[in-house]
Amino acid sequence: MNEISSATLAERTPGSTLRIATREVAAEGLITLDLERADGGRLPDSTPGAHIDVMLGNGLTRQYSLCGDPRDAHRYRVAVLREPDGRGGSASIHDELTVGSTVGLGGPRNNFAIVPSNRYKFIAGGVGITPILPMIVAADQLGASWELLYLGRRRETMAFLDDLVRYGDRVTIHTSADSGRADLAAWIGATDPDTKVFVCGPTGLLDEVEASTISWRTGWVRLERFQAARHPAPVRTAPFEIELARTGRLVTVNPDVTVAEAIRDAGATVLTSCGQGVCGTCEVSLLAGEADHRDAILDDSERQAQNCMFVCLSRALTDRLVLDA
């Protein structure tokens, strides 16, 4: 049986808490935050198109695409748009988070990975530019040709315009206040097996692209759709119970231990490896209850299936989890 040290969970899993290192205004209503581990340690690796869960002190969880350099193992950069009609997540980030504030981390996960192609067409609407930024860097590194159409209302609302200048005419900036609606179908053009299209932006934009690309091969046009309610329940701070189905044992998981530690404490074995929800070694089948997934492995539908969890860091939404352990 493993003894659980008296250090707090945050101290033993320092990767789960991030500190705001910088906060800058990037455009009207839009701030960028650089996040780092409080202990300066390495963050889990990310790939272009990935997003993280940011867990706020008020129990809300929000997803943000990473827009920094995936080679920088010590910083994640996210951009946060104040959404007046939102449910308070972005407002609390804008109003309450300052340099030095801490947030919880889940992921990173990638449902919008850049896949190989000779040519790319990127379309970004507003803050949808964020996952596209590391993608165009990767496209250059991969030796592919690419074009970006970046849509916004006015230039003042559009972040990173200065960073995009160096790409010259590969980037087209379209402002609807000046030029009206963009002709997406014309810009995308005819289907082409050597071209893949990546789109991130508001739902209306995604729907329009989808409608304009019906004749394209499945997988050649990829959209990042952020769903409003990925986290139905708030992050819980109260203890929860796990039931180990193979022995029937019940264990209480206090906020200061991981589920893996609790399983071991109950005399069952579970292997972990990376400790960051990346490698998949600690997967355990979930027989009942709902996990609060914080891994970098499961995609949205797999998370919703609630039939397995990575116990090195994922926790519970419900009062009890029944695990096949």
Partner: peptide
């Protein structure tokens, strides 16, 4: 990475 990313993700 980035060459490694897509083959890795697919095989993972």
């Amino acid at each position: 990475p980035p060459h490694h990313n897509a083959p890795r993700a697919a095989l993972a």
